[in-house]
Design a protein around this nucleic acid. Structure first.
Lengths: 222, 222
DNA sequence: CGTCTCCTTGAATTAGATCAATATGTGTGG
DNA sequence: CCACACATATTGATCTAATTCAAGGAGACG
């Protein structure tokens, strides 16, 4: 249960919905794949032949520096789509953060997205734009934010993407958070502890955060 | 000569070439506009009604933090296209770094890009993907790079985009470089000075850099 | 030749990293 | 259920890279 990449291989069909976009929903079908935590879905340099939709669990995409340090680009929660890249090979790698199920939509042959049908192109275009916007915000945070600003923005982002507005369930480790925010694990831990001491948040367990004073977090950034 | 935004208003025609893309060239026509250094082309929140191609000079796009700190997203050199955004209003602002001429292609009415013709959509899709890739690399640099790594990557990027492989003309100020790399002006200056002392680069003037040992710069990152 | 802006350099400070030591889980097998 | 091992987190004590504060220089331009 802890090592092999299970491939259910059950050919299913699912709506490729992307609720954060205004574009029409597109239905794609493809095999359902299961991955377990820390397992590679695709690696940098792999041929980019599928797009993926997260059904359950969480996925991260990341890049590596030569010295082994890692920058996480994004976390994908159930409903999110990832695996999109402009070139025939992946520039990012994708890994399961927790046990997860994804649907893979395999591109036919070596065609690129821009050779797909028109409706698809428009849909993917919107998606790419949304990614771009997110990436730019990430740049702003990485380039100019203090540790507290980064953590605050991260907590608010996770809260907005989750169900409850003040209860954040962190599916990823402190190391993942650190690599997403360009910090070290110790700084992440210390900053969270400090916020708890200040009464801004509560940490009932390591993976659960309660936003006690959302306003304070919001004020840190804008 | 130093304040007004001259608008030549001469309706011209020019190839919208994007040499870093493999997609077909698209010809657009629009008014030719001239901007002088430090002048706003569009601001965050402005209605996004045009795309722009740089004819001469350099443009920067940037975001601001509430405390006034700035993150420069990209520099656009002659031939580059910018001004593209997913939403009806700009999330970035664009300013002339030096005196520059841009061609504006005005979108007709309130239509979005995805309502344009198909060829255009494919073209813009490729462009958006290229932007995304660049933004992700920028994130890696901002999140995980040391000052020296950032400066080295920047110099190599500028060298690759310029004409001569070892002579880099910097059209922007040290402050601009700092805001692009998430550093302070002093750190940029010190790092460049140190590289000159090490014999890695030469600085004949403040705006000109000669790469004496390209290899050393390359080794800093990957 | 003075003024203004941009750049460089130095000294002091600090936020965050690094190094090191617990602590808190979390799962396993007895 | 407990005892152990192993993962992951927290906390503390330094250290350091980069920032901040503070002068000076070097060009550009009238």
């Amino acid at each position: 249960m802890s090592t092999s990449v299970a491939n259910a291989a059950r050919s299913g069909s699912a709506g490729f919905s992307m609720p954060w976009l205004e574009s029409a929903e597109i239905t794609l079908s493809g095999p359902v794949l299961n991955f377990v935590a820390e397992r590679r879905i695709f690696a940098e340099g792999d041929e980019a032949r599928s797009y993926y939709k997260v059904i359950s669990g969480v996925v991260r995409t990341c890049q590596f520096l030569s010295d082994g340090r890692r920058q996480i680009d994004a976390f994908y929660l159930p409903g999110d789509v990832f695996g999109f890249e402009p070139r025939p090979t992946h520039r990012l790698s994708a890994e399961a953060v927790s046990n997860c199920t994804v649907i893979a939509y395999r591109r036919r042959g070596p065609d690129t997205i821009s050779a797909g049908d028109d409706r698809m192109v428009r849909h993917f275009f919107s998606y790419a734009m949304a990614c771009l916007e997110q990436s730019r915000l990430h740049c702003l945070l990485l380039g100019r934010g203090s540790a507290a600003q980064k953590i605050a923005a991260f907590l608010l982002e996770m809260a907005d993407r989750g169900d409850a507005p003040t209860i954040v369930d962190l599916p990823m480790s402190r190391q993942d958070v650190a690599d997403y925010l360009g910090l070290t694990i110790e700084t992440v831990s210390r900053t969270l502890s400090q916020m708890e001491r200040d009464g801004t948040i509560a940490l009932p367990t390591t993976r659960k955060v309660i936003l006690r004073q959302r306003r304070v977090l919001e004020d840190l950034n804008a």
